[in-house]
Write a protein that binds this DNA or RNA. Structure first.
Lengths: 178, 178
DNA sequence: ATCCCATGTGTACGAGTGTACGCATCGCCG
DNA sequence: CGGCGATGCGTACACTCGTACACATGGGAT
């Protein structure tokens, strides 16, 4: 890694991009808005990230890392005798308990892959990595279905403005996990 | 309904908006791009739809209607003795068989509700309506879970660029439906 | 010590956007 | 039949955006 005058500049820009997306959505993300949030000149953001897609890739990757940490910690803390469904339903409960803001932000980045092929490999990394994590407790196909169901449940909560129902999630995840 | 000089003008604008979103994504949707696609002057789009949100609401509602028709037809055509899981898995298979374009378009409109509260009631209409349809074959909670799993499966296909696996979908939907 | 280049900075330009507004046109209602 | 409001149309303005580019600077290689 080459030394820079401001070695953290790149990271600060990524953090600023995440804050901007959280506050104004991807639609409000621009080189200028990120530059202002990170308190760097416009030229600096265009230098480190030639396109907004590059910036989104970095932001999504960081977002994925954050959630992966939560997931690993949760697994470590969980009662080893508890069922997988209970554990995952509880994880989602904790995920939503801190307000919808964080979930909205992370899902917006994740869902952006729908129309941005450049983001798809990063989204696939996330899905594959999580599936692998769950595969230690169940078979791979079931692991993927658990992820799909969790995504769908989160989506229903976020898109329709409803409330997260942990008992319902536990029941349905349990049917998949068996 | 008040007569207009061009009574279909509003509908044509909505159709044009759907084509624009299909071709360039919501990010490419503007009063001007819609006006060009619908072959009407700029002032006409701003007159009928004061904001882009209004236009998106109309587009999402029409998109929902289209899929609801497919769903009702599928149900009517399905073997009444076949299981619900087989039927839904087959429906998704048909949904993807015509290329990803249509699914991408409809999901983009649907997912737009994440950051646009104005779209959430329309997204909720869709979820509730579909759940009600499925409730004739199973209990309401199971119906909602089936929808959630279908959403999650579609998402994984669309976001990661993977292929739709009908046998896998049938198996996992079956676990929910029992 | 010197040079090269990655990094940092400021500015300018053309393209595209939402919005507003004035005017034209036509159907309806009194 | 006369006017009035809904609808349609074209244009102009202020703003933001991505991009490009010229120049400054300092660290590391030679």
């Amino acid at each position: 890694m080459v030394r820079r005058y401001d070695p953290e500049r790149r990271d600060r820009i990524i953090d600023a991009a995440i804050r901007v997306v959280g506050a104004k959505g991807i639609a409000g993300l621009s080189h200028r808005s990120v530059a202002a949030e990170a308190d760097v000149p416009l030229g600096s953001t265009t230098y480190h990230f030639a396109s907004l897609d590059e910036l989104l890739i970095a932001a999504l990757r960081r977002s994925n890392e954050n959630f992966a940490v939560v997931m690993r910690e949760s697994e470590a803390l969980a009662d080893p005798d508890a069922g997988l469904a209970e554990e995952l339903a509880g994880l989602l409960g904790a995920y939503f308990s801190g307000g919808r803001g964080r979930a909205e932000l992370e899902y917006e980045l994740y869902l952006a892959a729908l129309r941005r092929p450049a983001l798809r490999p990063v989204a696939a990394e996330w899905t594959d990595g999580t599936a692998e994590l769950l595969s230690r407790r169940t078979d791979p196909a079931t692991a993927r279905a658990l992820i799909a169901l969790m995504d769908g449940i989160c989506l229903q909560v976020l898109l329709t403005g409803g409330e997260y129902d942990e008992a319902y999630a536990r029941e349905m995840l349990g049917r998949i996990a068996r």
